[in-house]
Amino acid sequence: MAGAGILDRALAVLGCFSEDEPELTAARLAERTGLPASTLHRLLGTLLDRGLLVRTPGHRYAVGSRLWELGERSPLALRLREPAIPHLVRLYEATGENVHLGVLDGEPECATVLQVGRVTGQRAIPTLSRAGGRDPLHATGVGRALLATRDAAWLGRYFTTTRERETVHTIVDERALRADLDRTRARGYALTREEMTLGNISVAAALPPIPGLPAAALGLVVHIDRADERKLAALVQQSARELFAAVREG
Rank of each mutant, 00 (worst) to 15 (best):
A2T: 05
A4T: 11
A4C: 01
L7C: 13
R9Q: 04
A12M: 08
V13A: 00
G15A: 10
E21N: 04
E23Q: 08
T25I: 11
T25G: 03
A30F: 09
A30W: 06
A30E: 01
G34F: 02
P36W: 15
A37T: 11
L40D: 02
R42Q: 12
T46P: 11
L47G: 02
L52I: 03
G58L: 12
H59C: 05
R60D: 12
S65K: 06
L67W: 09
W68N: 15
L70Q: 12
R73L: 08
S74M: 05
S74H: 08
L78T: 13
E82D: 12
E82S: 13
A84H: 12
I85S: 10
I85W: 00
V89D: 04
R90Q: 10
R90D: 03
L91C: 05
V99E: 01
H100I: 08
L104E: 02
D105T: 15
P108G: 02
C110S: 09
A111H: 05
A111Y: 03
L114S: 11
Q122F: 10
R123M: 08
A124M: 02
A124I: 11
I125P: 04
L128E: 11
S129F: 13
R130A: 03
G132K: 09
G132F: 02
G132D: 06
R134C: 08
D135V: 02
L137D: 01
H138I: 12
G143Y: 00
L146A: 09
T149E: 11
R150T: 14
A152N: 11
W154R: 07
L155H: 09
L155E: 01
R157Y: 08
T160V: 02
T167V: 04
T167S: 06
V168Y: 03
A176W: 05
A176Q: 09
A186K: 13
A186R: 15
Y189D: 07
V203C: 11
L207W: 06
L213V: 09
L218R: 09
L220E: 03
I224F: 07
I224P: 08
R226L: 00
V236I: 00
E242K: 00
E242G: 08
E242S: 02
E249F: 04
